[in-house]
Design a protein around this nucleic acid. Structure first.
Lengths: 328, 328
DNA sequence: GAAGGTCATGTTATCGTTAACACATCTGCT
DNA sequence: AGCAGATGTGTTAACGATAACATGACCTTC
């Protein structure tokens, strides 16, 4: 920086002003400094800036490491959205969402002096660590506890589940079965709630929830059971991978989809359109979730205070070929 | 840090020595300092340390943002492997792997003073940006150009493809067709080469390559063509999602798998075992790729010089139900 | 034309850490 | 006892940026 200042014939402070777009610099001086920067290929030292300002241009993200489509899509979109505002994201992946792991990850972020924190906190056990974060750190949770008052961005799981179930009922099914994600995920809870509401509103009997995790393997196991029950004609799976496993189990036992049983998924993974049969599903807008999160966090960074605003995004139904009227 | 020093009754330099595990500190002093650190909840300021040492404990990773299973798995495993050595990874996701985007990402990493760089560089266009990196920056490329001499970690695409093709030939098929990934990916090129070698070695005719990308949609299109050609009895797909699309297209046109046509994929995504039928595929060890990369980069960080070592990992065949002898 | 502003720039102090060197105090050996 | 070398600790300077204040030049305004 000293070299740049010397070459441009100004003080280092003026260079700093040019770098930070301060208003009080003569146009001519600014150009001279910029030329010197370009000529020397100078790049500012972030660490020095962070040291003196006490804050980096980085958004810290905490997420569970997984290859699940939803979280991965959100992560990618977060990086992209942040970049458009001149920020970088730094992701701390945790193995499991226990309070200790989460607060370790948050600690590592705070050591880096991140400007704000985005935590993908889909389970209850995250709350404890979240509550321990000092109030002066901007915070947004994605898929977090709907009951918490902090900044929250999420897709409306209940509305999506309601739409999926409603779609099956509208096709003429008496009732709809549900294969759910892990019980401790808020996503699962919301989807169960939306499904129950739709079935109950239709005056139908609400079948018991079939508990699973998010993977095709557990969908397959649930499907094996569903295939044995002759009264089942419609299933809403909590995500597309579960649906994939169900499809396979039904196929194995000679149940045709959608002729014998209709299935709806959730997420609209890229493969959904190429399953046998193409899967009707619910599509959340992950890019919008990310954009809203970055928006909300930057508002807090600029304002210097916590915001407890919520942004809830409604997902859309994508119709394909896995739903038909019941056989009878 | 000054507070800690005062509480422990030592100088700040001694605190620094305790923090960095310097040998010349009396055991008793060390304990006193550690107690003070714990009592005050002191955490060192990374930025100050980076400023003075000129290097952070961060490994910079450059990857294309995508939800593809392979890259995502590697990313997660990299973070985990780095953490075990006290390092953090920082990922810069680029939209496309053009030279400009890559060198921007590398520039952002260097501004942060990363200790080393891991670039997932599966296409030729990455080379240009890679060559522009100064020699004193530790560098490892994953899935990079096999012809480059820099540190390289990759799975042996050719061996995997050879095993897949061999497996089909061993089942009795006259020849094997191949649906390939994008032509500019080294992964694709390696898989094509392995497939060709196996077919040629068996003295069979090598069919033309069917060009696709990595997505189920293009697998579906390729499958529609394959299904029309009565002589096709065995297909090796460059990845599992392609295979998924192929499976669907074959099913639609009344071709049974594996009775009429056998299919092998690549990657062993978690859903592979639950396709219709369960997919025989090649499983690369992504965790091992990540571990080798971190290993190799840390060796360079410690040694202070570039290493042009290569670590090539052989993937394994996973047999399921999508392969059978030809019908005739 | 003197007072008071604004504008453009420079000077100095500071952020929190590690490096380099200086200085005691021990240890073991002759 | 005396001295070399190890051991433990303190002092000072630096890393590269921004903040806060100081300064001088140029406008207004009455």
């Amino acid at each position: 920086m000293t070299d740049v200042a010397r070459l441009a014939g100004v003080s280092h402070q003026t260079v700093s002003r040019v770098l930070n777009d301060h208003p009080n610099v003569r146009e001519q001086t600014r150009r001279r400094v910029q030329a010197a920067i370009a000529e020397l290929g100078y790049r500012p030292n972030r660490a020095a800036r962070v040291l003196v300002t006490g804050m980096s241009q980085v958004i810290g993200v905490v997420a569970q490491s997984s290859a699940l489509y939803g979280p991965v899509s959100i992560l990618n979109a977060l990086a992209h959205a942040a970049l458009q505002h001149g920020f970088t994201v730094s992701v701390e992946s945790v193995r499991a969402l226990d309070p200790q792991s989460i607060s370790d990850a948050i600690g590592r972020h705070r050591d880096q002096r991140v400007a704000g924190l985005v935590v993908i906190a889909p389970v209850e056990s995250a709350n404890e660590a979240l509550d321990a974060i000092p109030d002066d750190v901007p915070l947004v949770t994605i898929d977090g506890d709907p009951r918490r008052t902090a900044g929250l961005v999420t897709v409306d799981q209940e509305a999506g589940a309601y739409a999926a179930t409603r779609h099956l009922l509208d096709a003429g099914h008496q009732t709809v079965w549900h294969v759910s994600g892990p019980a401790d995920w808020f996503d699962s809870q919301g989807r169960v709630a939306g499904w129950q509401r739709a079935v109950a509103e239709a005056g139908a009997e609400v079948p018991p929830v079939m508990q699973a995790d998010w993977l095709a393997s557990s969908g397959y196991r649930a499907g094996q059971i569903l295939a044995r029950m002759t009264e089942v004609t419609a299933v809403f799976a909590a995500n597309d991978h579960l649906a994939l496993g169900i499809l396979r189990a039904l196929h194995e036992r000679g149940k045709r989809v959608p002729a014998d049983i209709s299935v709806v998924g959730f997420d609209d993974v890229p493969e959904a359109a190429y399953l046998i049969p193409p899967l009707t599903t619910i599509r959340p807008d992950f890019a919008a979730v990310a954009a809203a999160s970055i928006d909300l966090i930057l508002e807090q960074v600029r304002g210097g205070q916590r915001l407890s605003e919520r942004r809830i995004l409604t997902p859309a139904l994508v119709e394909r070929d896995s739903v038909a009227p019941p056989a009878g």
